[in-house]
């Protein structure tokens, strides 16, 4: 029993960290632009494909391969996805900034379709699942007879570092200050001389890069990547961000942990729970929003008349 408990705890933390990283992107973009970037999940899941392609290109061009070069390829993918986010913002999402919320939602859902189809057509045999290697392998330590792999430690450490860096970035740097100002009140921020295009560019780069890391970890956790993983990644990350409270970073992390928690619980304790896990996840989403309509850590919306 203890063994099972620890094992599920490990699963929960791994998955929770990945979802939290996805949710942070949704929350960050919504906080600054007030737009739901529904294709964020799809953007994030392009990173495993870019990493695989980069690793292959390295192997062909300079004949190197192995774990170190995989990390190099992964870093390249993270950077590339950040740029993709910036481009998408410039070409599509920015135009829906002042449109009704539903427009942006539908447009970004369509954008998600486009991204998925592009992966499918541009990547060789993109319709098929592709094996994705573990970014770290081997057993790191043993707790109560359960082996905890380096991969789990990598996920947790990476998440902690990213969250700390993000907080430091938002709190301590001038650009972070501008992002926070724009997310508080875009018009006043502009009157204070903050160029919002730069703020949006930075926000999209950071959010997409963090999403890319989540995408790499997700593919690595699953051991495989598919062009349509982005749908689920997007839905779960979006749900995590919303039940945590859109625009709140701690909320996004909390939301990610909760979503992963219910998923692991359902898989462990409910018979046939693996196939019903999404039912439990989304029932929880409905339940949370019923009692906390602005999310767990979100600011209640005050309407002035």
């Amino acid at each position: 029993m203890a063994e099972l408990f620890v094992q599920q705890l490990v699963n929960w933390i791994t998955l929770g960290c990945i979802y939290a990283l996805l949710a942070i992107g949704f929350s960050l973009i919504f906080g600054v632009l007030n737009v739901i970037h529904f294709s964020h999940g799809d953007v994030a899941m392009t990173s495993p494909f870019i990493a695989l392609a980069a690793a292959q290109a390295l192997a062909i061009a300079i004949g190197v391969s192995g774990p170190v070069w995989l990390i190099v390829a992964a870093c390249f993918a993270v950077f590339a996805v950040g740029l993709i986010g910036v481009v998408l913002d410039k070409v599509v999402i920015r135009r829906f900034r002042d449109a009704p919320a539903m427009m942006a939602l539908v447009a970004t859902v369509a954008l998600g379709i486009v991204i998925r189809e592009l992966i499918r057509h541009l990547y060789p045999q993109g319709s098929n699942p592709h094996a994705f290697p573990r970014l770290a392998s081997g057993v790191a330590l043993e707790i109560a007879g359960v082996q905890v792999g380096w991969f789990t430690l990598l996920v947790v450490a990476l998440t902690l570092v990213l969250v700390v860096l993000l907080f430091a970035f938002l709190r301590l740097t001038p650009l972070g200050l501008r992002i926070r100002a724009a997310s508080e009140d875009r018009i006043v921020a502009r009157m204070m001389g903050i160029r919002d295009t730069r703020v949006f560019r930075a926000t999209f780069f950071v959010a997409s890069a963090i999403g890319a890391i989540a995408g790499l970890l997700f593919a690595s956790y699953a051991g495989v990547t598919r062009f349509d993983f982005g749908v689920m990644a997007g839905l779960l990350g979006f749900s995590a961000a919303v039940i945590g409270g859109l625009g709140s970073m701690p909320g996004a992390i909390l939301g990610g942990l909760i979503i992963a928690g219910i998923e692991v619980l359902a898989q462990t304790f409910v018979p046939d729970g693996a196939s019903y896990r999404l039912v439990f996840v989304f029932l929880l989403v409905i339940g949370v929003l019923l009692f906390r309509p602005e999310g767990l850590l979100g600011r209640p919306v005050m309407v002035k008349v």
């Binding site: 979006f238 919303v242 039912v279 029932l283 409905i286 929003l289």
Partner: peptide, 24 residues
Amino acid sequence: RTRDTYLALVTIAFGVVVQQLLNN
């Protein structure tokens, strides 16, 4: 109780739950 984006998510959630139940 909910509105805008939050309401959109509630309806998405209902849609997914129904579809998943039919599937299972």
